[in-house]
Lab assay of single mutants.
Amino acid sequence: SEIVVAMYDFQATEAHDLRLERGQEYIILEKNDLHWWRARDKYGSEGYIPSNYVTGKK
């Protein structure tokens, strides 16, 4: 599975969105859409994140 790191904070506005915290790692579950990826955080929460807010883990 692909691990990404959040470059920016993202506040979830929709129920299906996942909040991003800058510097935290997330697991990508689905990339069915170019701009919104389904991800899981370290607490096990899942939701959609803006793909341009994250970068591949170095």
Rank of each mutant, 00 (worst) to 15 (best):
D17R: 15
M7G: 02
A6V: 03
V54G: 00
G23D: 06
Q11M: 13
L29E: 00
V4Y: 11
Y26E: 00
Y8T: 05
I27M: 11
Y43T: 09
L34T: 13
H35E: 10
Q24A: 10
H16Y: 11
L29Y: 01
W37A: 01
Y8P: 00
L34K: 15
Y48P: 01
G23H: 06
R22H: 07
E14Y: 13
K31P: 02
W36A: 04
R19S: 15
E2V: 11
V5Q: 05
I27H: 08
I3V: 14
I28A: 01
E30K: 05
V4D: 00
I28L: 08
D17L: 15
R38G: 03
G47H: 03
A39E: 03
V54N: 03
R22S: 10
Y43S: 08
M7K: 10
F10E: 00
Q11C: 11
I3F: 08
I27L: 13
R19P: 14
L18W: 03
D17E: 15
N52P: 06
I28W: 01
E46G: 02
Q11K: 11
W36D: 02
R38V: 11
A6W: 03
L34N: 13
L20E: 02
K42F: 06
S51K: 07
L29T: 05
V4R: 02
D17A: 15
Y8K: 11
K42L: 07
G47M: 02
V4P: 00
D41F: 02
Q24W: 06
F10P: 00
G44P: 00
H35L: 14
E2P: 08
L34G: 12
Y53N: 04
E2G: 08
E30L: 06
E14K: 14
R22F: 09
H16T: 14
H35I: 13
P50D: 05
L34H: 12
E2F: 13
T55I: 13
Y43C: 09
E25G: 04
R38S: 03
E21A: 05
R19C: 14
T13V: 14
Y43H: 12
I3Y: 09
A15M: 11
G44H: 04
W36T: 08
L29C: 05
S45H: 14
V5C: 09
D17K: 15
S51L: 05
T13M: 12
K57D: 11
S1M: 15
R22D: 04
P50G: 03
R40E: 04
A39C: 03
K31L: 04
D9C: 07
E2L: 11
K31T: 05
L20P: 01
A15F: 10
N32F: 11
Y48N: 08
M7T: 08
N32Q: 11
K31C: 09
T13C: 14
V5Y: 09
K42C: 08
I27P: 01
D17F: 15
L20G: 01
Q24D: 08
S1H: 14
L20W: 03
L18I: 06
G56Q: 14
A12G: 15
V5A: 02
I27N: 05
D41N: 07
S51V: 10
G44T: 02
Y26M: 00
R19N: 15
K57N: 11
L20Y: 01
I3T: 09
N52S: 14
A12W: 03
E30A: 09
A15R: 10
A12M: 06
T55D: 08
M7Q: 07
E21H: 09
Y48H: 06
D41V: 00
F10M: 07
I3D: 01
Y48L: 13
K58V: 15
V5F: 09
R19K: 13
L20F: 04
R19G: 12
S51I: 06
S1A: 14
R40D: 02
G23Y: 06
A15C: 13
I28H: 00
T13I: 13
E2N: 10
I49A: 00
E21G: 02
V5S: 03
S1G: 14
H16I: 08
S51H: 07
V4W: 09
G56Y: 14
G44M: 06
V54Y: 02
R38P: 02
W36G: 06
T55W: 07
Q11N: 13
Y26I: 02
L29N: 00
E30M: 10
V4Q: 04
K42G: 06
V54Q: 01
E46H: 04
H16K: 14
A15K: 13
T55Y: 11
E21V: 13
Y43N: 11
Y48S: 06
W36M: 07
P50F: 05
N32A: 12
E46S: 05
A12H: 05
E2W: 14
V4L: 05
A6I: 04
G47L: 02
V5I: 13
I3R: 08
E25C: 11
L29M: 07
G56L: 15
N32Y: 11
D41R: 01
E25P: 07
S45R: 15
E46M: 05
S1L: 15
D9T: 06
D9V: 05
Y43W: 13
R40C: 08
L20T: 02
V54T: 05
S51M: 07
E46I: 10
H35F: 12
D17M: 15
T55S: 11
Q11E: 14
Q24F: 08
Q11R: 11
Y48V: 06
S51D: 02
V54F: 04
G23A: 03
E30D: 12
H16W: 14
Y26S: 00
D33G: 11
T55V: 13
K58M: 14
E2I: 12
L18S: 01
T55Q: 11
G56V: 14
Y8L: 10
A6F: 03
Y48K: 07
K58Q: 14
T13A: 11
I3A: 05
K57S: 10
E25R: 06
E14C: 15
I27A: 07
D41M: 01
E25H: 08
D9R: 03
N52L: 09
S1P: 15
I49V: 09
G47K: 00
V4K: 02
R40P: 01
E14T: 14
K31G: 03
A39G: 05
T13H: 12
Q24M: 10
E25F: 11
D33Q: 08
I27T: 12
E14L: 12
H16E: 13
L34P: 15
S45Y: 13
V54P: 03
E46L: 03
E30S: 10
I3C: 09
I49T: 03
H16P: 06
W37V: 00
L18M: 06
Q11L: 12
G23N: 06
V4T: 04
E2S: 09
D33L: 08
K31E: 02
G23Q: 04
L20A: 00
E14F: 13
R19Q: 12
L29I: 12
L29S: 02
A6M: 00
A15H: 11
W37K: 00
D41I: 02
A6C: 06
Y53G: 06
R40M: 10
E14V: 10
A39F: 04
D9L: 04
E14Q: 12
T13E: 11
S45E: 13
N32W: 09
Y8D: 05
L18E: 00
E25N: 06
T55R: 12
E30G: 06
F10K: 08
K58D: 15
F10G: 00
I49D: 02
Y48F: 13
Y48E: 02
G23L: 05
L34A: 14
W37Y: 05
V54C: 05
Y53A: 09
Q11P: 13
V5D: 00
A39D: 03
G23K: 04
E25S: 09
L18R: 01
I27G: 02
V54L: 05
K57V: 13
N32E: 12
D17W: 15
L20Q: 01
G23R: 02
G44L: 03
N52K: 12
E46K: 04
G44W: 03
Y8G: 04
T13L: 13
Y26P: 00
V54M: 04
G56H: 15
Q11S: 11
Y43L: 07
K42R: 11
A39T: 02
E25Y: 11
I28E: 01
K31Y: 05
A39S: 03
A15D: 12
Y53E: 02
M7S: 05
G47A: 02
Y48I: 09
D41C: 03
W37T: 00
Y8R: 13
L29W: 03
Q24K: 08
R38I: 09
L34Q: 13
